[in-house]
Nucleic acid binder design. Structure first.
Lengths: 145, 145
DNA sequence: CGGTGAAATGTTATGACATAACGCTATCGA
DNA sequence: TCGATAGCGTTATGTCATAACATTTCACCG
């Protein structure tokens, strides 16, 4: 049970199921965040019919770090960096109110400060949400500055 | 227009309306975050009947910095620091999955780093959400460590 | 090969969160 | 007094998410 390479049970990117793959591809091809129902609509012709089919797939994708949920939008995006679930588990998101696009980034300093706060308070940190709202450079550049 | 006390149009804590006051008191007396419908239920005997009455009050309270919306919970808390809307406009929240209690804090360094990122990217930052999930010291101390 | 258990699936129904649209009321300064 | 602005009350509806249950798929093991 403790074999060195006997790790078929680990947390790694195991193969995606059909529904999971469909949902992930949909997110990958999207310009911006999509709600579960947006995704469902795009996948009707692929046989999906109920919200749960999408939510279940999303749960797994988020669990594996392949997608993220944006709390302030109640919507989902695919992970910008295929390897982001390897290391920097705490991403930040800048969401443009103009075009709706999302820019994912990581700031180690920020992560560190928050972890330090948790440490100091004895707070068992499990997950962090960081979301910036505003207008991206492109949207500021053009219409209604 | 620049009279010293001619400032009835400013952003300051103008008097709250009846509904706003009811909602704020409800949040103040609560142990943890409340959903709009939780608040509505507590205020039925005061005459409130529809979600919109609560949501409208909440909008104003949040606008004035007297309450905060926790995106990851779809719930609301009163601002921990009466003066928090003066200066540190970017608060962070540590939400305990065990007891549901919320600890509000501000970390200038974090705020600064995020502002710096925005600056660098030309992102017009308007609002920031920072929410930590985990278990508070007290909950870690007792049951199911 | 066939059984078995874990995980995924499909479906219906329901719950929880939030806003649109409408008309009325109160307040306040010009 | 008039008109503008903000708040109020109500009904209806929209959006996001999960409960519950039956069925299917598939890797693994005896």
């Amino acid at each position: 049970m403790a074999h060195s390479h006997d790790d078929h049970h680990h947390e790694r990117p195991r193969d995606l199921t059909r529904n999971q793959d469909l949902v992930l591809q949909t997110l990958n091809h999207a310009e911006g965040p999509l709600s579960a129902y947006d995704i469902l609509d795009k996948l009707r012709e692929d046989g999906l019919r109920a919200p749960l089919q999408v939510y279940r797939a999303l749960d797994k994708l988020v669990e594996q770090g392949l997608a993220h949920r944006l709390e302030s939008l109640s919507a989902f995006v695919c992970c910008a960096d295929a390897g982001c679930h390897d290391g920097a588990r705490t991403a930040a998101f800048a969401i443009c109110s103009g075009c709706g696009r999302v820019d994912e980034f990581a700031d180690p300093e920020v992560v560190e400060r928050l972890a330090a706060w948790a440490q100091e308070k004895g707070f068992g940190l499990e997950r962090t949400t960081i979301e910036l709202r505003g207008r991206c450079a492109r949207c500021l550049g053009s219409s209604t500055p």
